[in-house]
């Protein structure tokens, strides 16, 4: 990983200005003028946002900032009052949610959705796209899908192995721990083989012992050429693995920039202090020692993962 990260010296985002709504060299997802109102509350009001292909972007913001709603809008689980999003240049406005997933953009949920009364293996196999046996008529003729099923099973077993879940293969997903469910949900999303994976707080509520392996997996995703967009509250993690940070508050994008610099941004400080009057910003100390952190987020992750 370290090798990869440092070899990739030409950071595609190096020349991008640190301002909200800025254009990126190679965006995979572009949101334009997206708004969503709940009663009197404007939960999301994003003028413009581009997500760069092949990097890890973190979406942060106080509770209730509209991050989950934004995810819902991007994945078409909810429809915006105004605005459009394009994925790989394709307008998604009237694309149903399941088609969005088939196009290569998969999201996970903040509250995990383990399919409790199915085994871990069945959960995984569900993620595979293009299984012919998922059509009614072919399902009646098992020989038409058996061999494909074998391939899917092998792939699922390999992923479970990588996620250190192999020993749970035949357990019902309902018996998993909270952290294991997060792992399963992420692994299941990977079975889709997406281009863009959107993770809503993948580390939330996860046993610290598992956190580190989750972090590794997120960086591995990038190394495999996937684009990752994730929501996270823990600033240490954001610093550690993300290449770019987008800050939301009260539905709006208020700042963008590399993780090391984002804490200095006055708008961000205001947004967080406005939300937690008494609590100081978690990363204030680090912003003081700005040079140190900005030096190498990639190094940080490599040190801990080795």
């Amino acid at each position: 990983m370290t090798a990869d990260a440092s070899a990739d010296m030409t950071d595609p985002l190096a020349d991008v200005a640190w301002e909200p709504g800025v254009a990126k060299p190679d965006p995979i997802l572009v949101a334009d003028n997206i708004t969503r109102q709940f009663g009197g509350l404007k939960a999301v009001d994003v003028d413009h946002l581009e997500i760069q292909r092949g990097v890890i972007t973190a979406l942060i913001g106080p509770n209730g900032a509209g991050k989950t709603t934004f995810f819902n809008l991007m994945s078409n689980f909810d429809s915006p009052d105004t605005g459009t999003q394009t994925f790989n240049g394709k307008d998604l406005t009237n694309t149903p949610a399941h088609k969005v997933a088939n196009l290569g953009m998969v999201r996970t949920f903040q509250l995990t959705k383990a399919l409790s009364k199915m085994t871990v293996m069945d959960n995984m196999k569900l993620g595979a796209v293009g299984q012919k046996g998922e059509s009614f008529w072919r399902a009646l003729l098992p020989f038409t899908w058996r061999s494909q099923e074998k391939g899917i099973e092998t792939r699922a077993a390999a992923l479970l192995e990588r996620f250190k879940m192999a020993h749970m293969t035949d357990e019902f997903a309902g018996t998993l721990s909270g952290g294991q469910r997060k792992l399963l949900e992420m692994a299941r999303a990977l079975m889709v083989e997406p281009e863009l994976v959107m993770l809503d707080e993948p580390m939330a509520g996860v046993n610290p012992a598992l956190t580190q392996s989750l972090l590794e997996h997120v960086t591995q995703l990038k190394d495999e050429g996937m684009t990752v967009l994730f929501v996270e509250h823990d600033m240490d993690m954001v610093q550690e693995i993300s290449d770019w940070v987008v800050v939301m508050a009260e539905g709006r994008i208020i700042a963008e920039g590399p993780p090391a610099t984002i804490g200095e941004n006055q708008a961000v400080v205001d947004a967080y202090l406005g939300a937690h009057h008494d609590a100081p910003l978690e990363w204030e100390d680090e912003t003081d020692g700005d040079d140190v952190t900005s030096a190498a987020p990639a190094d940080g992750s490599s040190e801990e993962s080795s």
């Binding site: 994945s75 689980f77 149903p96 949610a97 399941h98 088609k99 997933a101 088939n102 998969v106 999201r107 996970t108 949920f109 959705k113 399919l115 409790s116 009364k117 199915m118 069945d122 196999k125 569900l126 993620g127 796209v129 299984q131 012919k132 046996g133 998922e134 059509s135 009614f136 072919r138 399902a139 009646l140 098992p142 899908w145 099923e149 299941r188 999303a189 079975m191 889709v192």
Partner: peptide, 26 residues
């Protein structure tokens, strides 16, 4: 035959959580 097939698996997934099934492209 049907409920043991991938088709039946999708049905069960929908029963468990429709949103999860949709997020996986079903």
């Amino acid at each position: 035959t049907l409920v043991r097939s991938p088709w039946g698996r999708v049905l069960k997934a929908i029963r468990e959580d429709e949103d999860a099934a949709r997020s996986l492209g079903k």
